[in-house]
Design a protein around this nucleic acid. Structure first.
Lengths: 219, 219
DNA sequence: GGGTGCTTGTGAAATCCTTCACAAGCTACT
DNA sequence: AGTAGCTTGTGAAGGATTTCACAAGCACCC
């Protein structure tokens, strides 16, 4: 049995649902830690994350062995391990493209910073927004985007532009070297191989709910 | 072979990824229709939605038979069918709980209304926000929540409260009869059986991207 | 120091989802 | 009317993920 205490191994391909759950465990553990708990069992973690204890253990087992049999997991240790697994042991510079309602709301969102992500630039085409300040970062002109990406080397871009402008915005940030994008525009985007795009789409979420309500013939 | 032209059958359990994709197809088809296209093939739809043509056809086949062999799908017909499948042939009243940055941004989001969802109420505990207007809806006092839900019978609640308040907000709307919730708070919530909760969690999305960037040793 | 009670880690089984591959069916053209 | 060229709809195969079930391991107590 290998000792993975200090280096979770990335090893093989991990399914996205697994990564999402790990993120959820981390979120809950942070709150649990703040409440002063020292240890947690896979069962408790499962209940909080809406899954099963076997799932929790399997998810973690891909990366190593973090618990103590009979006892559970050390809360602080597991937090540290999950941070390392998810790549949160460094800070990630992020640019936001679009300073409208959503872009502005995001820029002012505190959790951004407290979770390891630093907003290093916000860009907008509207001259009346350029120069305004959002949570300490000045909105810059759209045209500065490429130059700033080259200079500040953010790894992640968050797109908060209208749907019609989203594909063009994606192409620009990808052209400038960005390989990971979070898209808030209600359009599905095509990206070249090697670029990860995640979408947050309110319409889709609401439609999933509408579908669920429409088909309550479940039991 | 049955004729399902006017009534897509809800029939058996459909996987959530399928429903999400259907929503994505609908979004793309609306844009495609606006460009004046009459028909579309499963291959074109697949490219736009980031999937395969077989997947598109399989997704649709759960609900009936909507295309013409050799030709593809009628864009307007398919839009109508997808709307019906997703339960968008009626309008859905929605309440927003929390009128902070995110709640306010959502309330002013136009796409809400154009996709069949009507914001019928926004609630906040902060007296300085109560009485302000957001896109034609007046922010009401937190205490009015239960009474308004009883009176206006919204089926969906969108939670935009801070993490610490999210579980309590969920319990309240569920108590008042809501069975579908979209949670923007960065906390995972526990809901009773029969209540559908979907979460939009920025931290998780960013962490999935961080994980992807950290493990680029793929190919 | 051995027993008891609890919880992890993990192969194997089961379930779920996606991809394959091809018959069926439509249109256009000769 | 027959043929050629596309594209759908769908069983069946293949892969992936989740669940099961149990041996292994730790702490506490007598």
């Amino acid at each position: 049995m290998k000792d993975f205490t200090s280096t979770p191994s990335p090893v093989k391909h991990i399914a996205e649902p697994t990564v999402r759950r790990l993120s959820g465990y981390l979120r809950f553990l942070e709150a649990f830690d703040a409440e002063g708990h020292e240890t947690i069992s896979s069962g408790e973690l499962a209940r909080a994350g809406g899954t099963t204890s076997a799932q929790v253990r399997k998810d973690l087992s891909f990366f190593g062995s973090f618990g103590k049999r009979g006892l559970g997991y050390g809360v602080k240790d597991l937090i540290a391990s999950l941070r390392e697994i998810l790549g949160l042991d460094t800070r990630w510079p992020v640019v936001i493209v679009g300073a409208g309602k959503i872009g502005a709301a995001l820029a002012q969102y505190r959790g951004f910073g407290t979770h390891g992500f630093d907003v290093v630039g916000i860009y907008d085409t509207d001259p009346s927004r350029v120069g305004t300040h959002l949570n300490g970062v000045t909105v810059r002109a759209d045209g500065d985007l490429e130059g700033d990406i080259a200079a500040l080397t953010p790894r992640i871009a968050v797109l908060c532009v209208p749907g019609e402008a989203a594909q063009a915005a994606l192409d620009r940030v990808v052209g400038a070297g960005i390989r990971a994008v979070l898209n808030f525009a209600p359009t599905s985007l095509v990206a070249p191989e090697g670029v990860t795009v995640r979408a947050v789409n309110m319409a889709t979420e609401l439609e999933v709910l509408a579908y669920a309500l429409t088909n309550e013939s479940r039991d």
